[in-house]
Design a protein around this nucleic acid. Structure first.
Length: 552
RNA sequence: GCGCCCAUAGCUCAACUGGAUAGAGUGUUGGACUACGAAUCCAAAGGUUGCAGGUUCGAAUCCUGCUGGGCGCGCCA
């Protein structure tokens, strides 16, 4: 959009320089065009003069001045000026902004979305918690980040699949069965010794009780009983997880079972592929992967000397399988305690013939809960962790999701439960939602005065001349850049900050300017501005999975 | 011992690919509802970006060392 026009203006000026020999013909022109954070520095700014300075051996300011002389910007800018030590600042005409808003209204808000990922397929794998216990608050954060990132990538043109990987083949599922079995024996009145490495949470006892209450037939042999209870417990817990996610507003396109890898022979083909390429070798009776060929990491075991595959092996197979399902971008969302695992998996996908950039791992840092201003213990041991369910019950879906997305995911998140439930100005969720409800209210009043949405198409946006009105228009149009930035950096939190900022400008405008005035034309112009603002707020909230209420 | 992440206003956090005078919220102080919702707004105050060097026209951002916090480092999953 407008940014592209600016780029063209810059390029044309540079081409002019090349023609008369001021600039060597083979000079690369890759200017950075950014929105200056300082409002006094125009709408867009470029550093091109700094980039050319070393080649030309001239000072940036002189280069900038020369370039500006050559620029043909009358169509889009009021002025273009050299500032600081050589920045070139562009001041876009109000009329251009007004036109962009008009276009967005006429063509629909979807035209504001970028096409960064057009033609690309992305698979986002997240949560993927083992079905051995309920989701805790950390999983909740990962779920929110993954879900919203999926929404963002999808808005940016990617074809996105959300996947949950279920580790149903490992030893932990057997441990789960054994835990339930022992609790079950306990309930039957038997003396058992419950080992420390079994699952400690109270939910295990509930499962055992359920088996009794439902009169489920337990085989006499312990082995068979544990097998039955493994399956029963795993399924029951998985159902609980899915219910929690559903209430959290997170839905997956596919659930991929680890056990499925074996049936399809993916493990074997992965191993033979690695052997073929020379990245797998035998040592001490085990099969090793040559991690060190790609990353600064030690070689890792694929098959133990007892013949068992490691978890790493099925993980490589799983990722190979993702690529074979023709995804070109893989996003994995992990708890940050798994960070040490990144190099070996990156090495593995390179061994499979992929670029390391094709796999993007997003680490989710821990969440610490705050209640009455004090931290709540989060020990997973002894089952003392806070579950996602508890947080959801306490603060609701909207606040929970919004709070999870207020931080960069690789930073610790302090989740203040008291603040999240507060129905006041202190709570940022309401700040955004209130703006939406407020706009809706204005439209209800407008309708009562005989102005309806049908009249908006005749709006004359040239009437929007106030500084804060132009600022709001820019905010709306910048939605495009925000989504693009989120999609490029895989950082969903930017959207919450954008919304808070946008909505802040609206609240401020609202307090200063009356929308429904005697001048009918002005009223309609302002209503169109608010209509588009509401569209952006609603769209932004919907990407976050937060509701946009008509009334509050 | 080795590796990864983090350190920004009293507190919680932003700062887009290195960009110009580092921004919000909260808290503190003071102010605005007899017209569209005060769950709102306006104003003031608050900083040597953990410390010390380096690269650069330019560093919160990149590099080196140090301090402090979190997390990893198994033929576990």
């Amino acid at each position: 959009m407008i940014k592209r026009n600016i780029a063209t203006i810059i390029r044309d000026a540079c081409e002019g320089c090349k023609k008369d020999g001021t600039l060597p013909v083979n000079t690369e022109i890759n200017p950075i065009i950014e929105i200056p954070r300082e409002e006094g520095h125009g709408d867009y700014s470029t550093n091109i003069a700094f980039l050319l300075a070393p080649a030309l051996k001239k000072n940036p300011k002189a280069i900038a001045e020369d370039l500006v002389q050559r620029m043909d910007f009358d169509a889009s800018c009021d002025k273009v000026e050299v500032a600081g030590k050589g920045f070139i600042n562009f001041y876009v005409k109000d009329a251009v902004w007004q036109q962009l808003l008009q276009d967005a209204y006429a063509n629909g808000i979807d035209t504001l979305f970028p096409s960064t990922g057009k033609g690309k397929k992305a698979l986002i794998e997240f949560v993927s918690a083992n079905p051995t216990g309920p989701l805790h608050i950390g999983h909740g954060r990962g779920a929110a980040v993954g879900d919203v990132l999926a929404n963002i990538l999808s808005k940016a043109g990617y074809e996105v699949t959300k996947e949950y990987y279920i580790n149903d083949a490992g030893r932990q599922i057997r441990t789960l069965g054994r835990s339930t079995f022992l609790r079950w024996q306990e309930l039957k009145g038997l003396q058992v010794s419950y080992e420390k490495d079994l699952y400690q949470g109270g939910y295990i006892k509930d499962l055992a009780r359920e088996i009794i209450d439902k009169h489920i037939d337990v085989p006499p042999e312990e082995e068979d009983a544990v097998t039955l209870m493994s399956r029963f417990s795993g399924d029951a817990i998985m159902n609980g997880i899915m219910k929690d996610l559903e209430d959290f507003g997170v839905f997956f396109d596919s659930y991929y079972r680890e056990s499925g890898l074996y049936g399809r022979g993916v493990i074997d083909s992965t191993l033979s592929l690695l052997r073929e390429k020379g990245y797998a070798y035998e040592n001490d009776g085990a099969l090793w992967f040559r991690t060190s060929a790609f990353e600064k990491d030690e070689d890792r075991v694929l098959i133990k000397s007892d013949g068992e595959k490691t978890y790493f092996t099925s993980d490589i197979a799983y990722h190979l399988d993702k690529f074979e399902r023709s995804y070109d971008t893989l996003v994995d969302i992990w708890g940050s305690d798994h960070h040490g695992y990144i190099p070996r998996l990156k090495a593995a996908i390179q061994a499979l013939g992929r670029n390391k950039e094709d796999l993007k791992v997003i680490l989710i840092q821990f969440v610490s809960l705050l209640k009455d201003g004090k931290p709540i213990g989060m020990s997973t041991r002894a089952g003392e962790f806070t579950t996602l369910r508890e947080v959801l019950d306490e603060v609701g879906r909207d606040a929970a999701r919004f709070f999870f997305l207020m931080r960069k995911s690789d930073a610790h998140l302090e989740f203040d439960l008291d603040l999240a439930v507060k129905t006041s100005n202190e709570n940022p969720v309401y700040y955004v939602q209130y703006a939406h409800a407020r706009i809706m209210s204005i439209f209800r009043n407008a309708a009562a005065e005989g102005v309806d949405a049908g009249q908006l198409k005749n709006a004359d946006l040239r009437l929007l001349t106030q500084e804060d009105e132009i600022k709001l228009i820019k905010g709306i149009i910048h939605f495009h850049d925000v989504i693009e930035g989120c999609a490029r950096s895989f950082e969903p939190h930017r959207i919450t900050f954008y919304l808070l900022d946008l909505v802040g400008n609206f609240h401020s405008y609202y307090n200063k300017t009356r929308v429904l005035v005697d001048d009918r034309d002005l009223t309609i112009a302002r209503l169109l501005l608010l209509h588009m603002l509401r569209e952006v707020i609603r769209s932004g909230l919907s990407i976050l999975g937060v509701s946009a209420p008509e009334k509050m």
